[in-house]
Amino acid sequence: MVNLRERAWAAAAAVVDPEIPVLTIEDLGVLREVVEGDAGVEVRITPTYSGCPAMGVIAWEVEAALAREGIAPARVVTVLSPAWTTDWLSEAGREKLREYGIAPPGKAGRRALFGDEAVSCPRCGCGETALLAEFGSTACKSLRQCQACREPFDAFKCH
C-alpha cells in the first residue's frame, strides 16, 4: 500500500515548470521534500533564482495537484537551504532539455570575471558556440548561437 507521503510526492513530482514545460519540478530539483506531520502534508520547494517569477505558479499547481488527489490538509512552503544549483538538475532532466533544444548547464561553479564557458549546440552537438546575450527568454537562460549549424539556442546558465 502506497502511503500518503509517497502519493503526495508523486502528485507534486508531476507538476511541470511553467517556463520549461518538458521538465517536471522533480527533474529540476525544485521539489525538495514531502513531510507528513500533525498539520497534514507539507511540500517543500526551492527557487532556482531568488527572483524566479515561476515560483508562485509552481506552488499553486502543486496545491492543485494535491487537491485533485484528495490529499488534505496540505501546504506548500519555500525553502532556501541548501541553495539550488544547476547540479540539482537530474540526468534525465538534462537529456530532456537537450531534446527540447535548450543546452543543459555544465557543472556548477564560480566562473572567472573574464572569459566564456564551453557550451555545445543542443541540435548538432558542435562545441563551437558563441554568446549572443547573457540573458535569454528567462532569468535562468542565456542566448547562444552555434558556429557550425548557425542555429540560435537557449542555454541553461551554469549557476
Binding site: 527557487p47 533564482y49 531568488s50 532556501l80 564560480r110 566562473r111 570575471l113 547573457e134 549557476h159
Partner: peptide, 15 residues
C-alpha cells in the same frame, strides 16, 4: 541560505 543564492547572482551581475 539567502547569501548562498545571492552570491551566484552577484557574480553574474559583476561580470
Amino acid at each position: 541560505a539567502i547569501a548562498a543564492k545571492a552570491e551566484k547572482e552577484a557574480a553574474y551581475h559583476l561580470r
